[in-house]
Amino acid sequence: MSGYDLLARSLVACGREGLTGELRVAGAPGGVFHLRDGLVVAAESPGAPGPEALLLRSGRIDGEQWAALVREAGGARWPVAGLIVHGYAGAAQLRVVCVMALQDAAFAIAAGRVEGCERTVGEVGPPAPVAVGEPPGRLLQDASRKLAAVAAMPRPVHPDGERPVPAAGWADGPLTELRGELLAHADGRRTARDLAFRTGRGVYTVTVEVARMFAEGLLETPGPPAPIVVRTPPGGVRQRTPPPAPAPPPVPAAPRAVELPRRSPGASGITESLTPSLAPEKHGASWKGFFRLRNGTSK
């Protein structure tokens, strides 16, 4: 059974049984489907930007503002009320972002390697659930339609496949905003998935655009990556040994004492000089005398 079949069977079974809980998909990138009464209300995957990443990377809100909203919402990971109240996004926009992120995560999970599926029963409370969940069958249909669409392109690209660079001779013509951003960030280190995170766009959208740009000669696969330069630290890498104990400070040459000087009581003469004149009993300034006065203690 292929990984996709395993995913489809597990997810559809969760839907049929009306599961409320999670379906964890092990693999690369893998992810989690959150279900409520058999409907998928959220999906998260390292292979696709979630609603938070989409908003933050789109520049609609910055990290500090986001942190303030999360604080305001008592630590909620998806501070939806604050986003609307402070005018960062409208309620409808946020609903669209959540649905897009859900479908995009399903696409990323389905496009990757699926090694196993494990379900957990019980509501965990996904960070950004959609109001009306998606039936698993329809979600998978949407994902496989997208996979087929990418595969049918003249120059198909896998989300975790090539790491393109701008083609050497690409004509400097008018570019869409997305294409401009992709060219700016395609540095030979980023896959379509990485570019999606970097630009705050859906991974399906970016994968399709990267495939088109390859086909149109705007992007190309770089040659072998530059070798990583390895420098050996002087003296090699050694297990750390405890630093030697610091040398004792140089002791000025002094006559060798046989033993340490010993303090003898009364040697300073301070007791004798104080007792006759400053005896506490005779002076009200003394603390002892003060307390005695207050407490009315007779001598």
């Binding site: 690369a28 540095d187 990583i228 330069v229 390895v230 420098r231 050996t232 630290p233 890498v237 750390r240």
Partner: peptide, 25 residues
Amino acid sequence: EQVAGITDTALAAADGLLIAADTAD
């Protein structure tokens, strides 16, 4: 390659001297 989302890696000696870097510009 193994973990989705890794952007850069570097190795250094414990005292902070760089040994190798696979990092963006």
